[in-house]
Design a protein around this nucleic acid. Sequence first.
DNA 1: CGACGGGACGC
DNA 2: CGACGGGACGC
Length: 475
Amino acid sequence: MEDYNRPSSYLDDPPNSRLFLVTSKSITEDIIRERFSPFGEVQDIWVVKDKQTKESKGVSFVKFAKSSQACTAMEEMHGKCLAEGTKPIKVFIAQSRSSGSHRDVEDEELTRIFVMIPKTFTEDDLKETFKPYGDIEYAIVIKNKSTGESKGLGYVRYHKPSQAAKAIENCDKTFRAILAEPRTKNSSADNEYFSNQRSDHAGNEPGLSAYPFGAESGSYAAGDGWNSDLITRCLMVSSRAPVAQEQIYSLFDLIPGMEYCEMQRDQYGFSKGQAMIRYSNLGSAVYAKEKLNGFEYPPGNRLSVTFIDDGEDRTSPVGKMAMQLVAAQMMSMVWNGPSGAQLMKTTAGYATPSMPQKPRVQTDVALPSHKKLASPDSVVKERLFVIFNPSPLPVDILEDVFCRFGSLVEVYLVPGRNVGYIKLCLLIHLKRSLTRGRELTDAASKLAKSLSDMTHDLDMTGRIFMMTRPHSYRQ
DNA sequence: CGACGGGACGC
DNA sequence: CGACGGGACGC
């Protein structure tokens, strides 16, 4: 509740989504709209005019919905002439309205991001994780100088502001990517700059990604819990050679669950050698990426497949790390599970590969019936503290199980730890079968067994505690 | 055993 | 050189 009452306050939201243009005075709002709207959703255009004469002062502001759109427009339009006989325009990211400064915002300030990463991440991991958004100049992990161990933080420098913006918008939220504060003399980095809510890019529109084909080696390590990739139902397919949409369609349609396939086009309607694919479920997308990234189609043309943000609302505090665990588990089902790891042999399109099903509760333990989740803003009345061994179960499974015992508000897994909280606003069955504060019980161990059963090799021999307080909420 | 929504770089 | 308007939620 800052100064958000003023409608104009969201000219700075999300940060760096507004451009400052210097043009000839003859350039009109209509010309600007025509030339800038191809880069994204233009929310506002304002040509600054003299109060008396109404003549343009040769200065304009263009507000985009997203920072990446503004940055791409800046990169593409800086130095262009918008009309015959007019001077080339200058385009900068506008200073935020609150800053008061009129200094040009340098690319230096827009190309380096600051991220939280697993302690196990190497600089190569960091690079691999963030290269889908653009060419990386360098990636460094912040380490303890004496011990050399990672502090779980890193910097990634891109070549272009739009690439950094895309990384911030689209990378897994657990990375908490933000623009890095420029390295300065005064070491205090405690500006009030970054407390702004990030855009949740819920309305991600395709078609603006400016990154070159990131020919990525289809190798990534699964197994250390924290997979470096964003995991979603949406994939981006990149091809060096032009491939018809129908070809991509039939290829990716081999995997059940494809619900959307569309070539990406630039503002002139030309194919960019990229297509967006969406599946109806995570498992299909994970499987598709695993099987088709690096696949030569047509022969000699390596396809690159990466996850892209599907714009789904995953802003619940659960975070996406849990999704990565889901994916890791699906991998293990693909590789080890009974449904087998049948490779797709051909692109000829009839042999549908057997698919791992989305994990569902399958147990001989009698579970109460599935109930609807409580609304996310319900007051949490009880929390269960769960310790997982060896590693947390996927959130959707936990939700599926625990929603049966009460009115489930949220499953929260503490990132990077083997613990989590089950938050409920009403307890029905659990309350009778679990004893406060004590390690137990028949019901809990059955629950544990059923969890283990349904997750194959993951063993949940953890203990479940009852917590009394919904934590840190003042009464 | 374990934990509460996380943040900064040798100039 | 080249920096900040217009319009007016809905309890």
